[in-house]
Structure formats: C-alpha cells, structure tokens
Amino acid sequence: EVTIKANLIFANGSTQTAEFKGTFEKATSEAYAYADTLKKDNGEYTVDVADKGYTLNAKFAG
C-alpha cells in the first residue's frame, strides 16, 4: 500500500491537502478523480508530479 498526497492549489490562493491510499494505480486514480469533482466550481487544473509520482500538485485555474 502506498499513499499519494494531493496538494490542491486554488485560484484564490487557498490550498487543501488530501491523501489517497491503496496500490499506486488506485491511489493515483482516486486523486485525479477527486480533482475532477472540484473542476465544476474551481475550473480546469494542471498537475505537476513530484516525489516520483507520490505527490501531485494540482493548480486550479479558477
């Protein structure tokens, strides 16, 4: 089991951190699915991958 950390950075400057656990593939998929649920209210996002894929920095356009 691994933990994927998602740093969510919103256009207004606020941030949120979420963690997803499971296999690498499952946890990564859940992190992206969570970011997708936030698109409606926060706009499209881009992701910078860090820490060999164990940290995802998602920046929302607003």
Rank of each mutant, 00 (worst) to 15 (best):
K59S: 11
N7T: 09
G62K: 08
N7L: 10
T46K: 09
F10K: 03
T23M: 07
T3D: 02
G62L: 06
K5N: 06
A35V: 15
A18N: 07
G22W: 00
I9A: 07
E44N: 12
N57A: 03
F10D: 01
F10A: 03
V49E: 07
K59T: 14
V49N: 04
E1Q: 13
A33N: 09
T15D: 03
N42K: 10
V49Y: 09
A18P: 03
T17L: 10
Y34I: 03
S29C: 15
Q16K: 11
T37Q: 13
N12S: 08
I9K: 07
F20V: 03
K21S: 11
A18Y: 14
V47L: 09
T15M: 14
N57R: 02
S14E: 14
E25D: 11
G22F: 02
Y54F: 14
G22Q: 00
E30Q: 11
N42P: 00
F60C: 04
V2I: 10
Y54P: 04
Y45C: 03
G62H: 07
K39Y: 06
K21F: 13
D48Y: 11
I4H: 02
L8W: 11
I4P: 00
E30H: 07
A18Q: 13
F20C: 03
Q16G: 08
Y32S: 03
K21C: 10
N57P: 00
T15Q: 10
E25T: 09
L56H: 03
D41M: 13
T3S: 07
F24T: 04
F10V: 00
N42A: 12
T55K: 04
D48F: 11
A27R: 00
D36C: 07
E30K: 08
T37V: 10
E44W: 09
A27E: 00
A35G: 02
T3V: 13
G13L: 05
Y45A: 03
K21E: 06
I9P: 01
G62I: 06
E44D: 13
Y32V: 07
I4Q: 00
A33Q: 10
E1D: 11
Y45M: 04
Q16N: 08
D36N: 08
K5G: 04
V2S: 05
G22H: 01
T23V: 07
L56R: 02
E19H: 12
Q16E: 12
V2T: 06
T17C: 13
A58Y: 15
D48C: 15
V49D: 04
T37F: 12
D36G: 03
G53L: 00
V2W: 02
G22E: 03
F10R: 02
S29Y: 12
T23S: 12
D41R: 10
A11M: 09
A50I: 11
L38E: 04
N42C: 15
L56M: 07
A11F: 09
A35C: 15
E19L: 14
A31S: 02
K52M: 13
V2R: 05
K21H: 14
T3K: 08
E44A: 10
E30V: 04
E19Q: 09
Y34T: 02
L56F: 09
G13H: 06
Y45T: 01
L8Y: 15
Y34K: 03
F20K: 01
E44F: 09
G22L: 00
A61W: 13
A61H: 13
I9G: 03
A61P: 07
A31Q: 00
